[in-house]
Amino acid sequence: MMYDANYFRRFIEIFAKYLEENKEYLTRLDAAIGDGDHGINMDRGAKAALDRLSSTNPKTPGEIMRTVGMALLSSVGGAAGPLYGTIFMRMSLAFGNRDKIDDKNLATALEQALLGIKGLGKAEVGDKTMVDVWEPVVNFLKENIENGRTLPEICEEVVALAEERMKATIPLQARKGRASYLGERSIGHQDPGATSSYYFFRSLCEAIGGR
């Protein structure tokens, strides 16, 4: 499949809608093990991204992702700002000035985004962070796309895997970020960054057919 600017706009709109609908939920998750602002921060960031998209009207997938990345950097406020900012900036760089992105380009861009957040936050799988969702999902996507499958064909599996990995953060002890200050008391709570990452991949899939 080819993914054009309209696809990426749809993706951002769906992601923003999930963040708005789940603002209280994400904030509650963060209040349990962090500083209780992830939902509010991500919702504010997503709204700033939508505003910048409508005021600057970028034309290519790369420009769209760059616009969103800069808006998240300036508006999210917490650690998620640089992390999600990096995801979108890295994807923008990987897309370059192409008008249409194919599945291989998309997989490469997501892999670059994963490397970006791992480099920035130095988190590994098992640390109870967004990487717990990102790494297995990106590896699954990459492997399947290399074997000739496309995102629309594997969407259900991608969403199921993201959800499973998100829930798998519950029994983990946090080793990165503010939650790590809690030590063993972070066990038993779902990680808010892993949760917003689940919405990211779910939105990427739902943007294919519209929500």
């Binding site: 602002d37 921060n41 950097l73 300036s74 508006s75 406020g77 917490g78």
Partner: peptide, 15 residues
């Protein structure tokens, strides 16, 4: 702090 003056950081302003 954030743009609104709350706790947080404006990563674009840092850049």
């Amino acid at each position: 702090g954030t743009k609104e003056g709350n706790l947080g950081i404006d990563a674009e302003l840092v850049l």
